[in-house]
């Protein structure tokens, strides 16, 4: 057997990934350390000036803190909702196939389209959400959902959760189906009720899948752009800005390519630290 065979096998994927990711990353690092005009022309090396500029910008700090809230809330909410849903979908009942397909549906529409449809539904005058809520009697007068961050941001978090659920329950369903049924039988013999069964069997065995779902979702949600952009563009008064929308405005609305690249690098660093930290923690726990 050729010793280099595995290397040949991974080579094509390595080359493609390197090509598509490393070069842009290299460009970004360069730009983040340079004085760049809005047309991308590099005027010279300026060290960490772009970084100090963004770290002194209160809007950047606000956006960074809000990104933490956004990520924790969306990922936390997603996990919290997905576990019971997955447990239900894992039990046998009439129409389970249909239920599973329905729960996958949010995945089928692309995020910008989901956001567009919701923007229309949330419209204070013509939106169906107010009309429906008023029909059911939950509210008396229409709420203009996107007019203030106090309602807009929670709505965006809710949408973030909604679109993350399909992927997450898919992972959990995979995990649940790998738990041997005789464990439950044995627990039942011992007189364990449903909650005890969940606590003693389901949850511990699902743990690795939950970890995986957290890591992947944190990465997706942290980088997620369309929901907030389409619904509010970070407004009103920058009160729903997160790092990606801040980045996008710096780069494309204001032409601050250098600062925007610095934001990119800062975001990348945060994710890197998170992933390493989390990987360590999980490994320690498993030992």
């Amino acid at each position: 057997m050729n010793r280099n065979l595995p290397l040949y096998l991974i080579l094509p994927s390595l080359l493609l990934a390197l090509f598509v990711i490393s070069y842009p990353l290299y460009e970004l690092i360069n730009l983040s350390l340079s004085d760049v005009n809005r047309f991308g022309k590099v005027r010279g090396y300026i060290g960490l000036e772009n970084f100090t500029y963004i770290f002194e910008d209160p809007l950047f700090i606000d956006a960074a803190l809000r990104t933490v809230v956004w990520t924790v809330a969306v990922v936390g909410g997603t996990i919290l909702f997905s576990i019971p849903i997955a447990v239900i979908l894992n039990t046998e009942f009439h129409g389970r196939g249909i239920a599973r397909t329905i729960l996958m549906l949010p995945w089928a529409i692309s995020l910008p389209m989901t956001a567009i449809v919701w923007r229309w539904s949330l419209n204070g005058e013509f939106g169906m959400l107010n009309a429906s809520l008023m029909n059911v009697g939950l509210i008396d007068s229409p709420i203009v959902w996107l007019a203030q961050s106090a309602t807009a941001f929670p709505v965006q978090i809710g949408l973030g959760i909604l679109v993350s659920i399909p992927f997450t329950i898919t992972i959990f369903l995979g995990g649940l189906s790998s738990i041997p049924l005789d464990l439950y039988e044995a627990a039942k013999m011992d007189g364990a009720n449903a909650w005890q069964q969940f606590k003693r069997i389901t949850y511990p065995l699902l743990r690795p899948f939950i970890n995986m779902a957290i890591v992947l979702n944190v990465i997706y949600v942290f980088n997620s752009f369309p929901i907030i952009w389409v619904l509010t563009q970070g407004g009103p008064n920058n009160e729903t800005d997160i790092l990606v929308t801040y980045l996008y405005k710096q780069a494309f609305s204001f032409g601050h390519i250098g600062q925007a690249s610095a934001v990119s690098i800062a975001m990348f660093t945060v994710l890197l630290i998170f992933t390493i930290f989390y990987a360590r923690m999980v490994m320690k726990n498993e030992k």
Binding site: A17, I21, L25, I219, L271
Partner: peptide, 20 residues
């Protein structure tokens, strides 16, 4: 390496990708 590429999304790299 794969994990790192997994962490990046097009929006973060968009300026560099465009140049590529």
């Amino acid at each position: 390496f794969l994990l790192i590429t997994q962490m990046l999304s097009p929006i973060v790299l968009v300026i560099g990708l465009f140049r590529l």
